[in-house]
Design a protein around this nucleic acid. Sequence first.
RNA 1: GGCCCCGUAGUUCAACGGAUAGAAUAGCGGUUUCCUAAACCGUAGAUACAGGUUCGAUUCCUGUCGGGGCUACCA
Length: 612
Amino acid sequence: MCMSIIELLQSQVVKAVAELYQANLDVDEVVVNHTKKEFEGDFTIVTFPLAKKIRKKPATIAEELGKKLVGISASVAGYNVSGGFLNLSLELDFWHQTFNELIESEYPLPKVDRKIMIEYSSPNTNKPLHLGHIRNILLGWSCAKMYEFIGYDVIKTQVVNDRGVAICKSMLAWQKYGNGETPSSSNLKGDHLIGNYYVLFNQKLAEEYQLWQRTDTAQRLYKSNQEEHPKESSFFKFYANQYFNNYSALGQEVRNLLIQWEKGDQATIDLWNKMNGWVYDGFNQTYLKLGVEFDVSYYESKTYLLGKESIVMGLADKVFFEKPDGSVWVDLSDVGMDEKILLRSDGTSVYMTQDIGTAQKRYQEFRFEKMVYVVGDEQNYHFSALFEILKRLKEPYAKDLFHLSYGMVDLPTGKMKSREGTVVDADVLIQEILSISTRSAAERGELEDLTEERQNEIIKRIALGALKFFIIKVNPKKRMVFNPEESLDMQGQTGPYVQNAYVRIRSILRKTDLPKVAFGNYQMSLEERQLTALLEQFVATVEQAALAYDPSSIANYAYNLARSFHRYYHEVRILNAESEEARDFRLILINHIARILEKSFYLLGIEMPERM
RNA sequence: GGCCCCGUAGUUCAACGGAUAGAAUAGCGGUUUCCUAAACCGUAGAUACAGGUUCGAUUCCUGUCGGGGCUACCA
């Protein structure tokens, strides 16, 4: 693909400035915008930044530059000046040529022989996926698609937190209170079943804690801490973890189970395997509904011992230090962080240790050039520390790690809190939007002549299109509010709006054959030039979005393109155009619009329906 | 306490330091003998506050106020 229009103009301005003023300019110094609709022209050069270098008034520069560009550039037809803004109009031939190149372009872009690994899911096996996971998954999936588009080899991965205290809690609760319940006996998805036992465990623990709080031991503890925690309730809230570790009978049982697991006790391992198997069945169903998959999965149960050798080596190299009790730490205070623990005094590893080991394992296995962790911004500090530690260990890939940190998803009522039961479950949410989509499809009645199977496929695409677009249109870095009702909207700035533009085009194209040639003597209108300019931006938009790990810009691009199309569609007739040439051109134009809309949505993980 | 992030129409989101801050939704008013009205057109409405840097600030800097996160021998 040759250079974009903006790049072309930038280079021409550089040339013109060199000839006019003998001044050297970098292409990046040339600001080129699309001309605002209030002004005449296609593109606008901002001349304020040039004023200092050239030592003339911006308006004068604009005037002289405009004249020069018309002279030296075959693509610039005319110009006008408004203050420091030079508005350029491009030759019609140039537009026609651009258009012809566009419709022949091929996507994805050629392979570049670079490898990127993207971790975009890291579920715990003690509860089902929720709305936060959905944002995580959609972001990561879209990044994978964007990088494939720009020619990378992409390895999609997840890390499953399948061991530890949390899963033992579910196991224990199931053992004690489950009566052998299974997904099939209860007709529950496995992840939901396990989630129920996790909740049940916490209920039982809370009851146990309540009773204990009335004992003499508890009251003594409270009294001796009364200065810091004057209120009894706040003291016991503060003390919950210590209670679990030091007094709770249930806590003791959980720890015993964990020890059995670590010893490899067969009965415990069997139970663990059985329950995790149920959870994976559940997760896989949810992943399937969301249309995502992984090339490789890592399991904490297999990686939790990794990383220890590195700690020992780092200790020898004085990257880390040992405290008198035998625990190993790294001091990151010179880069504005704290001391972080890497090995407990009993020699066992922590989360950070595993992450070090897992990074090494992945690099050995895949030799990636980039590794992206899609993880919520609550873990910013953890990843800063992890990357810094790997740098100090002189890992060759340390500089190629990136934490795609996304903002939490809030509800209109505030934060999602599992303790308060305000978490939006992924499966429930998908089910809800499917029923809304089904209902509105029935009301509209457009699909009645299709088989039920095809209807359901279309309904699914619309429903998931609405949900996914709603989430992915927001800049990943920003915290977002998820209003369940609005997310199911299908009008305005939504997935179905964009899908509708595609469907309208497909409907027209079904009625006729695509012409072979775009232009006879046809001359593009202003609106058609603007659509062409928008289409021309597609590749640059995707490239920028990929480099910035920001799918939301593609969502906004697709929406803008759809909006321009909808307006165009109302203004011109296509099948009954005023001339054969207009008809041919427009058919090819809208065909390309449909193609780009479809591509854009593919990059967002959203499928297009043929009808709706 | 320390460190980090965020404050844009009633609401949800946009805006490489560039022209009169864009959309959507909710409100009000229109458009269908015409290719899918999940559409289109019109109307009204916002940069938390105070300074600073700049030809130019929603964007960069400082302070104030407000919201959030992190700061475990948890993951």
